[in-house]
């Protein structure tokens, strides 16, 4: 999967989990590992999404990845 496609897919994954389960970076990594995507690619896609401000890290007794509030 191309990085751009992976980023969109990852954004949708986090978006669909909102309100149901807080995802940790490790959860995202495991999800894509099960789909056969290399860990480095997953890390890079997440890094880009966070650098762009489309995803943010939050802390609620542990660190999570979420969509920033509007």
């Amino acid at each position: 999967m191309e990085i751009a496609e992976l980023k969109e897919n990852m954004y949708k994954l986090v978006e669909s989990a909102m309100g149901k389960k807080k995802l940790k970076a490790g959860d995202i990594k495991k999800h894509y590992r099960n789909e056969g995507i290399a860990e480095d690619q997953v890390k890079e896609a997440l890094k880009e999404l966070v650098d762009e401000g489309r995803l943010i890290y939050t802390y609620f007794g542990g660190s999570y990845v979420e969509i920033p509030p509007k």
Binding site: V50, D51, I56, Y57, T58, G61, P68
Partner: peptide, 10 residues
């Protein structure tokens, strides 16, 4: 807790 950090940092 809550939203923390600056852009790009967790």
């Amino acid at each position: 807790g809550g939203i923390v950090g600056v852009r790009g940092y967790g």
